[in-house]
Design a protein around this nucleic acid. Structure first.
Length: 421
RNA sequence: GUGGUUAUAGCUCAGCGGGUAGAGCGUCUGACUGUGGAUCAGAAUGUCGUGGGUUCAAAUCCCACUAGCCACCCCA
């Protein structure tokens, strides 16, 4: 017996219905905002992520599925979606199509880590990238789209957090001040924080260890280090969001795990059972395209975890019941009846009706049981009596009523009935 | 990578003072010889997660491994 690899999942049956419902909504929202789908490879050169996501990040340090191919190229399964899109943007010279370039993607991502609630090794993301605009309108557009998606999915209990990380100068100045604040307190903070102090000072703000909280409280605030330009940008984003009636909480301590974020970043949190999911996150990444060898092009994007979305949708009962698996079941008894049933099945299927017939050689009773289990709306019953009389029985499953219909008319009768629903 | 916890039928679980498996649900069949959803009856399906140890004897006790779940780290 071979089991699926750790941290992976089979998605089928009822579960897949919910996924498809999400995907449909996501595509709709993307379309409404003028985004076109892009499909990039599932594996890329490992270098792509090391250079964009950042070699200090956990993703690169310990979570990448890297492997060598037979020509000794160092490849990896993609851990996130933005870098491949940027790579493709540059490689295919999409800038020449005119800017902004607006694309969305949906598919599996891979990170080697311990699975738990809302976290798998193979997980799925829906994401969108708006490439080419530095305007606050572009930041607001992506936040708007995120919220639009949540609303479309009828998930209303979200909280949106936004932060302005500032430009490079602002961040350097802030980081210096932050380190200054922590310098004489290194003995008092947790080991993780001591490490962060050296490698990525901004993430000191992420620490949840109790002993570090008071020190964090007294730390300088990023907002105070923003240059006039960044302050202005932040103000404009805030105004535009207000105009869209989007309720955003500005959190100066919000920092994100990927190194490439600059300027505006945002996250959506959502209560899920005992915990809180980070449903979705995004932000501006103005330097990435240049870092990857393109010409400097400002960009914003976001991504959401589909597993978490689907779990939340189910928890909120925000999805309709999956549709019935067949609209019509054609029941037959005997060989001649079977031949007739195949004709009707074919006719109806060619008109887009979902039809099933007996493939198991079951008796009438068990065929009806099966039809019921498939949630059929109508069952057409064909037996010897019907063949003799030239009429078939049409049974409406939820009422149990059945009437005789002239055999030549039965398909049209069904079409009329279904059209009237 | 660290810590906690669990693993018995397709699913949910009982059996754990050792004596080679059971319930409910589901599936299939029948009662109803041509009528589903209700009821009743019957049937099928298990290397009791894997490997080792203790023992005359292990689902049960011990150890290791693997996997699930949960938390930390981090993230979607």
């Amino acid at each position: 017996m071979i089991n699926r690899p750790k941290g992976t999942n089979d998605i089928y049956g009822e579960e897949i219905e919910y996924w498809q419902s999400f995907e449909k909504a996501a595509r709709k929202v993307a379309g409404v905002f003028g985004f076109q789908e892009i499909r990039t490879p599932i594996f890329e050169m490992a270098e792509l992520f090391i250079r964009s996501v950042g070699d200090e990040t956990d993703i690169v340090q310990k979570e990448m599925y890297t492997f060598e191919d037979k020509a000794h190229r160092l490849l990896c399964l993609r851990p996130e979606g933005t870098a491949p899109v940027v790579r493709s943007f540059i490689e295919n010279n999409m800038a020449s199509d005119g800017l902004p370039k607006q694309v969305y993607y949906m598919g599996p991502m891979f990170r080697y880590e311990r699975p738990q609630a809302g976290r798998q090794r193979q997980f799925h993301q829906f994401g969108a990238e708006l490439i080419g605009s530095s305007s606050p309108l572009a930041d607001a557009e992506m936040i708007w789209m995120s919220i639009f998606l949540l609303e479309e999915l009828r998930l209303h209990r979200y909280t949106l957090q936004v932060n302005m990380l500032g430009c490079q100068n602002d961040r350097e100045a802030y980081k210096a001040a932050l380190k200054e604040h922590y310098r004489d307190k290194l003995d008092a903070i947790c080991p993780d924080c001591r490490r962060r102090y050296e490698t990525n000072a901004l993430r000191l703000l992420d620490c949840k260890v109790e002993g570090c909280q008071t020190i964090k409280e007294g730390a300088p605030i990023l907002t105070d280090f923003l240059c006039p330009e960044c302050q202005n940008h932040k103000r404009q984003v805030s105004q535009i969001l207000a105009q869209y009636n989007i309720d955003a909480t500005w959190n100066p301590r919000l920092v994100r795990g990927l190194d490439y974020y600059t300027g505006i970043v945002f996250e959506v949190k959502y209560p899920f059972k005992e915990t809180v999911f980070d449903l979705l996150g995004g932000g501006r990444y103005d330097q990435v395209i240049e870092q990857l060898g393109g010409s400097a092009t400002p960009s914003v994007g976001f991504a959401c975890g589909i597993e978490r979305m689907v779990a939340t949708m189910r928890e909120e009962k925000a999805i309709e019941e999956p549709a019935s698996l067949c609209q019509v079941f054609v029941l037959s008894i005997g060989e001649e009846a079977k031949r007739e049933s195949l004709k009707i099945t074919d006719f109806l299927r060619k008109r887009g009706i979902s039809v099933q017939h007996d493939l198991m050689g079951r008796n009438i009773r068990n065929q009806l049981k099966y039809a019921d289990k498939q949630r059929a709306l109508y069952t057409i019953i064909i037996g010897e009596d019907e063949l003799d009389k030239g009429v078939y029985l049409v049974k409406e499953m939820d009422t149990g009523d059945q009437i005789e219909v002239e055999s030549f008319w039965v398909e049209n009768y069904i079409l009329e009935k279904l059209a009237a629903l």
